[in-house]
Amino acid sequence: MSEELFTNLAIFVLSLLVGFEVMSKIPATLQTPMMSGANAIHGVVVVGAFVIAAEANSWPFYILAFLGAFFAAVNVAGGYTVTDRMLGMFDRKPAAKQEEADHK
């Protein structure tokens, strides 16, 4: 096993453990936004789309690079936007309430 592969494997395993640990019991209210937020994070695949676009040198590869960039961009841009919209609905309410209280 090369040193590079071992390093990557170690990172992979430890990241899995972090993922299991960081996700203790979460309230049902937040499960849908959490899923959407996690969905946005795997949009990091967009970094990979840049990497392959830099290596493309003929049409089949350009087409694949285009597809990769398009798919990944939809995932990352859409994912963060919709998660923020969902979560914005939760914190808008107490904030509006606070303002109301301030006026009184």
Partner: peptide
């Protein structure tokens, strides 16, 4: 995909979502 292109941020974020998503 991170292993394939040897990019660690893909490995970390992917594994994080893989594990957290399983618990969820």
């Amino acid at each position: 995909a991170g292993f394939v292109i040897n990019n660690q941020v893909l490995i970390i974020a992917g594994a994080l979502v893989g594990a957290a998503g399983t618990i969820l």
